[in-house]
Design a protein around this nucleic acid. Structure first.
Lengths: 243, 243
DNA sequence: GTCTATAGCGTGATAGAC
DNA sequence: GTCTATCACGCTATAGAC
């Protein structure tokens, strides 16, 4: 990287962002292994070797996307377990935060949840994701023990709930949604309802979850975004990919 | 990843079936594109070119597995729409049949649902799967209209329900389950419960679904009714597809 | 920062002996 | 039916001009 350049040109950031964006879409469509660097370059509108000016390797592109996909949810879940509130409320808060993160993300994160990615040479992210899943299973187990949830295998519940998050990604598809909060609450309500022993307590559960979300937002640092996280105020233009 | 040891317990099977079995496991672990024919051969315990005596290409291996994974559920859903019963009951019957098919299948079908497979050069199977998803969305839409289900986007419901089927595959993992019917009913009960407007009607819904399943089974085996054909549910044995 | 040209390698698949 | 040997191709990544 040009160390003596005082200002990283907006052009470079733009290209880097577009690479991530197009790569994420292609990974979602065809999978990571099946996507070639030539296809990514073609979607961005540059020649294939030009990618390697911005990223050291194809895996590095995936790595940057995985950071967005996994690091944020893992951090929020970690914040969640310290919060007060019943297990079901905390689980619902997690489901909401996860869904809203997806709906606010400018990249299509679908391909990053495929097994060829998570079981490949990405032990670092795999470990983080396992931690996430363990946290969810722990919350499910507590909710079942306290009678909030019906009897269910924690592992099955975890896979259906994370599968529900995938459903949010599928419907989202990388396109901006009008009201992310509303959609995220809808999804988390349905997923929580699946296991709630007394479904009529869903509204109360959501109120508890909402309070937890507010508390986390209050204690969270304003800038929680490393270099790869694109600005919330995005100037993402509609892509004009040469097919 | 380390090369897998040849599966000695499977050495008695036909080589062709062992190839399918080991390939399915590898596809589930690493994805289709990331799995090499050399890895499949190593898992089976033969040299790589020997695979091509049994299958014309790597894609042909995948094709044989996709037939097992998609053709059976598509056929049962087609039989379902002709049955009497409320939309929720028919949907629950589908979820049960799908789960039981998975739990009775000797192959790990997880990798076949990955997007790199279904969006690749397999338009034939992709079309069949789309048909399946459309059928599910149609049942969801009817159930919502009739007040059996809570208000929900059919597309979201379809992805969560098919995601729930994936959860069954994940827990199954290709290993035999003691009581497939019991596990399949548990899963379909939870998934149906997610959208049932009045969860207290779940038992009634299951009774209706069970009757539909029985009717389908009756019409699926209309001609062969020798004396030794038992009707016990647990006796249902999925015959391996040997094309 | 992007380009052209190409290296280096692993892949799916084939040929022919046994 | 399985083996050894090998091909032809497409892939990621590098080198160096501009």
């Amino acid at each position: 990287m040009a160390a003596r350049e005082p200002n990283r040109s907006a052009e470079q950031l733009e290209t880097r962002h577009r690479i991530l964006r197009e790569a994420a879409t292609l990974f979602a469509d065809k999978g990571y292994a099946a996507t070639t660097t030539r296809e990514i370059a073609a979607a961005v509108g540059v020649q294939q070797p030009s990618l390697f000016h911005h990223f050291g390797s194809k895996q590095e592109i995936l790595d940057s996307l995985l950071r967005v996909s996994i690091e944020v949810p893992a951090a929020t879940l970690k914040a969640l377990v310290r919060q007060e509130g019943s297990p079901a409320e905390r689980l619902m808060a997690h489901l909401f935060l996860d869904a809203r993160h997806i709906l606010s993300c400018p990249y299509n994160l679908l391909g990053l949840h495929a097994d060829d990615v998570l079981l490949g040479d990405f032990g670092r992210w795999r470990a983080k994701l396992d931690e996430l899943h363990r946290g969810i299973r722990r919350l499910v187990r507590s909710a079942v023990q306290e009678g909030e949830f019906v009897a269910v295998e924690p592992e099955f519940a975890q896979w259906t709930l994370t599968g529900g998050t995938l459903a949010v990604i599928r419907i989202h598809g990388g396109a901006p949604r009008p009201r992310p909060d509303r959609t995220a609450w809808q999804a988390s309500r349905l997923l929580t309802r699946m296991y709630l022993a007394r479904p009529e307590t869903l509204d109360a559960c959501q109120r508890g979850a909402s309070e937890i979300v507010d508390r986390i937002r209050a204690e969270a640092t304003p800038e929680d975004s490393p270099a790869d996280k694109p600005k919330a105020k995005e100037k993402v233009k509609e892509k004009e990919v040469a097919p």
